[in-house]
């Protein structure tokens, strides 16, 4: 969990090699099909298939274990919350199908269908979006934004923030270690007292980082940042036929799955 390149995890997978713009369009496709399923079709099997496709995209790009743990935990949590809240939010009829022992929650077939479809509606797009960040260099994302005519100074803020993410994490860990050696136990005590202890972490961090803001600003000036209205990119993003093909393939896959499942596996 060093985040050496921000969220980017270097690699040579299929997703690493496609244009970031194609990945963004892919994520929007996932979002569109998920919305359609989550609101109109409500087929958990189809939702599960989209979910599986984004999971395959994530796993094929070989992220660090941090991401596996994160999305593993998140998938369980969202399924749980969805099952807990959706049936209670919308009163539904249907055949009673499932009773959770001990807790006594009753689920009809409709309630289950709704809860599962909604859970996949939440999960698939966020994993797709995470995959973009995991497989794209911050610099390439910056270029994609600039090519889409975002003002480049503003587009640069999140990119620069991603660059300094590992620096901040290292700084915080250093400070936490230093405070621990002075017997500041961050993991003990009630929640308010634990929060209060974080002041001892954040004050030195902030003072150091704010001084750095000045240095960073001067460094950006020294590098001529913002000197020209437009800038070149020495490694230019090129949209290749390969990117188009991948997009068509995914869209076709989602469409065909939709037709097949609603026709033959209607629940």
């Amino acid at each position: 969990m060093s985040f050496e390149y921000g969220l980017y995890v270097p690699g040579r997978s299929v997703f690493h090699r496609i244009d970031p713009r194609a990945k963004i369009i892919w994520a929007l496709t996932v979002l569109a099909f998920s919305i359609y399923n989550g609101n109109y079709v409500m087929n958990p099997i189809y939702g599960g298939m989209i979910y599986a496709s984004v999971l395959i995209a994530l796993i094929s790009s070989k992220p660090t274990s941090f991401w596996y743990k994160l999305f593993g935990g998140l998938s369980v949590a969202i399924l749980f919350f969805s099952l807990l809240f959706w049936p209670a939010s919308v009163p539904l009829g249907g055949k009673p199908l499932l009773v959770i022992p001990v807790l006594g929650w009753k689920y009809t077939d409709l309630a289950l269908r709704l809860a599962l479809s909604k859970a996949f509606l939440v999960l698939s797009p966020i994993i797709a979006i995470a995959t973009i960040f995991i497989t794209s260099r911050p610099g390439d994302l910056f270029q994609a934004l600039v090519k889409w005519r975002f003002p480049y100074r503003l587009a640069y803020i999140p990119i620069l923030a991603l660059r300094f993410l590992p620096t901040v994490i290292v700084e915080i860990r250093t400070i936490i270690d230093a405070q621990k050696s002075r017997a500041l136990e961050l993991e003990k005590g009630s929640i308010p007292s634990r929060i209060r202890k974080y002041v001892a972490v954040f004050v030195p961090l902030m003072i150091r980082m704010m001084k750095s803001a000045l240095e960073l600003g001067v460094a950006l000036d020294s590098k001529g940042f913002g000197a020209m209205k437009t800038r070149t990119f020495s490694k230019e993003l090129r949209w290749r036929i390969y990117d188009t093909l991948i997009l068509i393939m995914f869209t076709a896959l989602y469409a065909v799955m939709l037709i097949v499942i609603t026709r033959f596996l209607a629940w």
Binding site: P138, G139, T167, F225, T232, S234
Partner: peptide, 25 residues
């Protein structure tokens, strides 16, 4: 120097100012 390195690779770091001044590729 950590705070003055604004990109995520050595190549990009050196190319960054040149790109800002709009030099040809």
């Amino acid at each position: 120097p950590e705070m003055q390195l604004v990109t995520t690779s050595v190549y990009e770091e050196v190319a960054f100012p040149l790109e800002n001044f709009g030099l040809p590729r």
